[in-house]
């Protein structure tokens, strides 16, 4: 065998050894990949299985909430009128008037009175529940009384037609009657 043949044979052997080494390494790497993909597929299958009932449940929740929103909006518009309803919503949630009510397309074009700039949220709530309710002294006649100062004052005064009660109880540290519990922490007052 000539020297050239020996060199050629050695080169071929080196090539075969390189093929074996790298291909076996690739096989091991592909085995890891396949194992990782199997675990990933199992986890994804769990995700699919667990998330399957989410859509109908969320749809049902949204349907209930939509019905509640529609009912409350309808009640608010019915009781307060469109303008005051939009003003109340705008007062509680600034910017909400631009979106309007779902079931009242004309609410988007209704100009919201600036109720929120005059009354606090608590006052707004009491105004709606008290002044315009039959349970109060007298329901105002002649339209909404919410921004009618005179009407509101008369309605409040009508609560005590005979005589006003005494002054409001004195409160504070010098009050004759202390309402705090005896064991109350004074540092929290």
């Amino acid at each position: 065998m000539s020297a050239a043949a020996v060199v050629l044979l050695a080169a071929v052997v080196l090539i075969v050894l390189a093929l074996v080494y790298f291909l076996v390494s690739v096989i091991f790497a592909l085995t890891k990949i396949a194992k990782g993909l199997d675990e990933t597929i199992a986890a994804v299958g769990e995700i699919v299985e667990k998330s399957a009932p989410v859509a109908p449940v969320v749809d049902d929740i949204n349907a209930n909430l939509d019905a509640a929103v529609s009912a409350l909006e309808g009640l608010l518009v019915k009781k307060a009128g469109m303008e005051d309803a939009v003003g109340l919503v705008e007062g509680l949630y600034p910017g909400a008037a631009a979106q309007g009510f779902r079931d009242f397309p004309d609410s988007k074009t209704t100009k919201a009175p600036r109720i929120g700039e005059v009354y606090t949220r608590g006052t707004l709530t009491l105004a709606r529940l008290g002044r315009e309710a039959p349970i109060a002294a007298a329901s105002p006649i002649g339209g909404p009384v919410l921004r009618n100062v005179l009407g509101g004052s008369l309605a409040a005064r009508a609560l005590y037609p005979a005589d006003r009660p005494g002054r409001s109880p004195v409160i504070g540290t010098n009050a004759p009657v202390q309402y705090e519990a005896p064991d109350a922490d004074p540092s929290t007052v």
Binding site: A68, A71, V77, K79, A80, E132, P134, P144
Partner: peptide, 17 residues
């Protein structure tokens, strides 16, 4: 519950117009 409260408010409160 909200619907029940709404029904009660509908009875208690006068309509706007």
């Amino acid at each position: 519950n909200v619907a029940a409260y709404g029904g009660s408010l509908d009875v208690i409160l006068d309509d706007a117009r």
